[in-house]
């Protein structure tokens, strides 16, 4: 991946004059675009195979939008992130598709999820990482407010669906509920711990593989 990115930057350098700061920004942007596109292709590809494309697309979109403003835990490697996104979103998709929950049950779940989300956003959002710290107080306040607005808009939608008895939206409601619940879990210290444990687990597997290859 590193080599490919360097090749792309070399191509830019050949045809255009770019200074060191522009190069650093480009490298950062290419990393972000690659991880986003690769993650989306792998996740949606698996969802097509499982026949749950629209549900998984909804989950992915909800998680991404909320993550953009609320932050959350991150993996240390792109591969870990892509693998876990595929597993988590598709598992949620399968739950939405195959586990029958009544419309009232979904509303109750959404209500609990709303309370859980409010608590976590007020306490932890925006949850930053050492790779991208958010130090500015004003910026932090703005991002927290945006997260709260998003959650409130979502819950107004849930209430409207329930009051008008729009049963056709039940899968959408359950998918977004699960996505928001997971995203809000990643804001908490336990969420960070979970991501770190997954990272350690993958690194251990890699270490064992490398040892075997060396032998």
């Amino acid at each position: 991946m590193e080599r490919l990115i360097q090749k792309i930057i070399k191509t830019y350098k050949k045809h255009d004059q770019i200074d060191q700061s522009q190069e650093a920004i480009l490298e950062y942007g290419i990393y972000l675009i690659f991880s986003t596109i690769l993650g989306a292709i792998c996740t949606l590809g698996v969802s097509i195979l499982l026949g749950i494309f629209s549900i998984v697309a909804m989950i992915l979109l909800t998680m991404s939008i909320l993550r953009y403003v609320s932050g959350g835990a991150h993996f240390i490697k792109m591969g870990h992130c892509i693998f876990m996104t595929v597993v988590i979103t598709n598992t949620m998709g399968l739950v939405v598709q195959y586990i029958p929950i009544s419309f009232g049950g979904i509303f109750t779940l959404s209500l609990f999820c709303f309370i859980f989300a409010l608590r976590n956003i007020l306490r932890y959002a925006p949850a930053d990482t050492p790779q991208k710290p958010i130090d500015n107080k004003h910026h932090r306040k703005k991002l927290r407010q945006q997260s709260l607005v998003l959650i409130c808009i979502w819950f107004i939608g849930v209430i409207l669906s329930f009051v008008n008895d729009w049963k056709t939206t039940s899968k959408v409601l359950l998918a977004t509920t699960l996505a928001i619940a997971w995203q809000c879990f990643t804001l908490t210290p336990k969420g960070y711990q979970f991501y770190a444990q997954i990272d350690t687990f993958f690194e251990k597997i890699k270490g064992k593989k490398q040892k075997k290859e060396a032998l």
Binding site: D16, I18, I25, L26, Y28, L32, T36, H80, K132, S147
Partner: peptide, 28 residues
Amino acid sequence: MLIITFFAVSTAASASSIMGYQPKMPVE
């Protein structure tokens, strides 16, 4: 280049990247 720069700057202004991987943000 313009699109990549826009993506980088908008992500820098947000809380985090939209996927579960966050590369180190350049000092620049």
